[in-house]
């Protein structure tokens, strides 16, 4: 099949993307120390940190690119790879651990072939772990696209994930 590009559409997407990035970066203009907050905002928008955006940040905020990269790779909240349609976060805090949280991570690897930080090939799920979400009464906790699922076991996880296509 021949690939036809709908140029005006692509152009519109790229423009809206650039506009959004620019306005986010501009809202932090001159505030080098707000780098981490800016990166969080950009990741919230695109669900990952596109590399060309990092270059742009480095230029606009006058921060060496090496420093931007060091911050991105140091903090676990940031990812340089695009995430899947649905983000599955398994809490591995101590309370969730003693209640069997690790078995949910094992289950994801077994059933979907992804380890923490990875995304399924069909881009359906990305898996992340978190050290504690602070709702230990509900453990083991899994968060799917921001929705908290409490007292989850591997069997229940199956049923929850079925709802996310």
């Amino acid at each position: 099949m021949e690939l036809t590009l709908d140029f005006p559409k692509v152009k519109a997407i790229v423009e809206s993307y650039t506009e959004k990035v620019d306005s986010l970066i501009d809202s932090y203009a001159g505030n080098k120390e707000q780098l981490i907050s800016l990166l969080q905002d950009i990741q919230a928008e695109f669900n990952y940190l596109p590399q060309d955006v990092l270059v742009k940040i480095s230029q606009k905020l006058d921060i060496p690119l090496s420093q931007v990269f060091s911050v991105v790779t140091f903090f676990r909240a940031f990812t340089l790879k695009p995430r899947g349609r649905h983000l599955v976060t398994v809490c591995l805090g101590t309370a969730c651990h003693v209640k069997g949280g690790q078995r949910l991570v094992d289950k994801m690897e077994r059933d979907y072939g992804i380890k923490p930080g990875e995304t399924t090939e069909d881009m359906r799920f990305s898996l992340e772990t978190v050290n504690c979400l602070g709702c230990c009464a509900l453990g083991p906790v899994v968060v799917v696209d921001g929705k908290y699922e409490s007292k989850i076991n591997p069997d229940k996880l199956d049923r929850v994930l079925r709802g996310y296509k």
Partner: peptide, 8 residues
């Protein structure tokens, strides 16, 4: 307010 980046 500054939000952390998830490092213990």
């Amino acid at each position: 307010i500054n939000k952390g980046g998830g490092a213990f």
